[in-house]
Amino acid sequence: MTWLVFAFAVWALGWTVNNWLARLRPNRAITLLVPIIFGATLLGIWEGVVQGLEISPILLPAPTMIAQRTAASVDILWVDFVQTVIKGALSGYVMGCGGAFLIAIAIDRFPFLQRGLLPVGNFVAALPVVGMAPILVMWFGFDWQSKAAIVVVMVFFPMLVNTVQGLQSSTAMQRDLMRTYAAGYWVTLFKLRLPAAMPFVFNGLKIGTTLALIGAIVAEFFGSPIRGMGFRISTSVGQLALDLVWAEIFVAAVAGSAFYGFVALLERRVTFWHPSQRK
């Protein structure tokens, strides 16, 4: 009972504080603080409800329990992290995005390919590409190569479509100006069109970050060596060691957010001129 009261108190407190903060003149600290308080409130409610209603840890472990487990199994989590994120997701992400970027530049030179490949690319980008996972696991074996392969396939088309769109985003006026400067194809590409394409490219890169992690983890459900986050999740679910599963999810969440945040930071540095990045 006290735990339930605690949960309610946390909720009331968090909401009041946030309401008060939101009415103040917004500055950097407040825009950062409000979501943090909200998150902390959620965690508090979670803890209180789980303890108060005595929900079995097999169904939903309390946050403190997950934190303990995370601290206790750092070595396992690290091994899994290296296997899935570094070897599987990152290498596939780099190959997929890099390849798509280069091919997009090639496509851009040929209007015929543009008209033919873009609809197909758009179509494929909407398909459940994760389904390719069992096939690629069959082709490339159980180790990280097959995970990287599925990541390549998953990030390729969103990246391709976005880059091609971005390369077309410079206006006719701007291109004409380059012509009056007697700039050739390559100069125009590097000085005008690639920079102009960057907001779109980063859009593709950001979509890719989440897809990469999903692809790498899901591919492990179809077969993997005895390490890796997807492997650990599916086996721990079988053993009902849900706290370890949540610890893996915690790591995945942190890794995913950090990955996304890094790309977003890079975007801010590269496309500082774009209206959406200006303060």
């Binding site: 979501p35 970050t209 989440t210 899901v218 999740i233 679910v237 893996e248 999810i249 995913g256």
Partner: peptide, 25 residues
């Protein structure tokens, strides 16, 4: 306004979490 400031960042953060991974759970 309060919801805008507190929920919106988490909505975005929720998508950086590879949720499909916890599907089996």
């Amino acid at each position: 306004r309060t919801m805008d400031m507190s929920v919106m960042p988490w909505v975005i953060a929720s998508q950086t979490i590879p949720i499909l991974a916890i599907a089996p759970m």
